Each structure stands twice: as C-alpha cells, then as structure tokens.
Simulated assay, not measured.
Amino acid sequence: MATSVDVLVQPFREALNVLGFEVYPLKIGWYNAVVSQAHQLQYSADTLALVVLSTPSMFEKVFLPFLQKNCCQGVRDPIDQCVAQTINSCVSECLHDQNVEISFDYEMLPSRKPKFLAQSAAHVAGAAYYYRPSDVQDPPWGNKKMFGVCIHPRLGGWFAIRALLVLKGVEMGEALQQVPPPNCVSSREARIELLERFNLRWKDWTYRDIIPVEERYSPQQKEYFITSPDQRGELLRQWGFFS
C-alpha cells in the first residue's frame, strides 16, 4: 500500500513534538543495508518506520508530570515506563488505523540482542550522525576497542533515541527519499576528540558539547541521569515523589 508519508506521520509527529520528542521517517531497507544480517528486520525494504528521539525538554514536559501522578512505584525504570506510555498513547491517538510494531531502545530479544540498533536507525533516518571509529583515518588509539556515538545537529549529545515504530503494510516506494544526517563533526581532529571523550571520559558528559547546542539537560535532569539506576528511586523520594 503506497501512501504519502506526511499524511501518516505529521499528526503523530506534532503530537510528540509538543511533548519534547522528535520523529523521523525511514525505510526498513535503509536500516537493513547498514546493519549485519543478524540485526536486520524482517519486513520489505520499502516498509515505513519511524525513529523517535527525546529532547532535553521531555524531562520537564512529560517525565516530572508523570511522576507527580505517582503512577510508577515499583517500576524498574520510570523513564522507560513514561516514554512507553507517552508513545503508546500517541500511537493510539494518531496511528490507530495502522498496524504498528513498537520497539523500545531498552528491549532485548531472547538472544539478548537489542530489538533494533538505535544509533544506526537514527543515522539512516537523517536524525543524527553516527560517528564510528571507522570514520577516523589512522586513529591514534590503534586497535583499541572504541564505540561510536550519534551527534544531533542542534542538540549535540543532549538527546536519547527511544523507539522504532514499524508501520506494517505501509510501503513508501519513491514517496520517501533518504536524506543523510548533517555531518556536524566533520574534521578528523574533532572526530578523534568526540570518540575519545565518549569512550574515555564519558562520565564528564563533555562529548555532548562537541558542537554548539541549542538546548541541554536542566540541572535536575542531569542529577537524575548522573545517579546510578539503582539509586534513582531514593533520589525521587528526596525530590518528594513516592512519599
């Protein structure tokens, strides 16, 4: 079924935008072309998918109000529950006539592989450039294992990739053309600095500011994410939640 991407996506995108999320369309074929066979998704190449990012404002717009409703006691990760509830609600409201398969960034297959490779999905959708060691010629770290990281053209590293939605049976054909993500860390020196900050000094978060950014996490949001997951429940109690 060929259709216009704007007709399908725009209401969903607008509903999430006001809550601090961004939505980018892609074709499954774009994703499958850049991942190993073990991670490929079993849909036709033209099947429409949507990758969802959270921006810094999501914390204040959605997460804190979610906590104020006191509806997530005993949950493994309140952020995960909040994001899932928000995206599911918007799918029910805006994509209710579609068969949508939702995979969240924290979900794993029985094989312990992630349900989707979030950074690869964001890259092929044009949302954020996925910088990998292979993007650096003659890397100074030699054969040392280094991980790649996505950088958003406006938010730098101050964002998270939250979900991939597959609209089963919706095929785009020529209606959706691939646009590469902005290459905002273009020099070899800057890429080296980015990857070294991310791999060797990730706790100081300076990799997130590798480029000038429009928005960062608030002090309260930083405190939350700096806190180890097993201590976040106590932090939320200190903030007055879960009393």
Rank of each mutant, 00 (worst) to 15 (best):
V62G: 02
K145H: 12
A84M: 08
V149M: 09
D204H: 10
E215L: 04
R154W: 12
G233K: 15
K27T: 10
K145N: 07
V34I: 03
G126E: 02
V5C: 09
P133T: 07
P229D: 02
C184Y: 10
C82Q: 01
Y130G: 03
R162I: 00
V9T: 10
D230Q: 06
L200F: 11
I87Y: 00
V62Q: 02
W158L: 02
T3C: 00
T3P: 01
Q37V: 10
D135R: 01
Y24E: 01
E107L: 06
V100G: 14
M172W: 02
E60A: 02
L155H: 04
V9P: 00
Y129K: 14
M172G: 09
R216W: 05
Y130P: 07
S36H: 04
A45Q: 07
P11A: 13
V34K: 07
R201N: 04
Q177N: 08
T3S: 09
L117K: 05
V100N: 07
C184Q: 11
A118R: 08
K69P: 14
L67M: 13
L109I: 12
A190G: 06
L50W: 12
E214Y: 08
V185F: 01
I79V: 02
E214I: 12
D6K: 09
C94N: 01
T206C: 04
E60Y: 07
N88G: 10
A127H: 11
P114H: 11
E189Q: 09
S4G: 15
S187E: 03
S186F: 09
Q238L: 06
E193P: 03
I161E: 00
S36W: 09
P181K: 09
V75W: 00
S228K: 15
P212K: 09
D6R: 12
I151E: 10
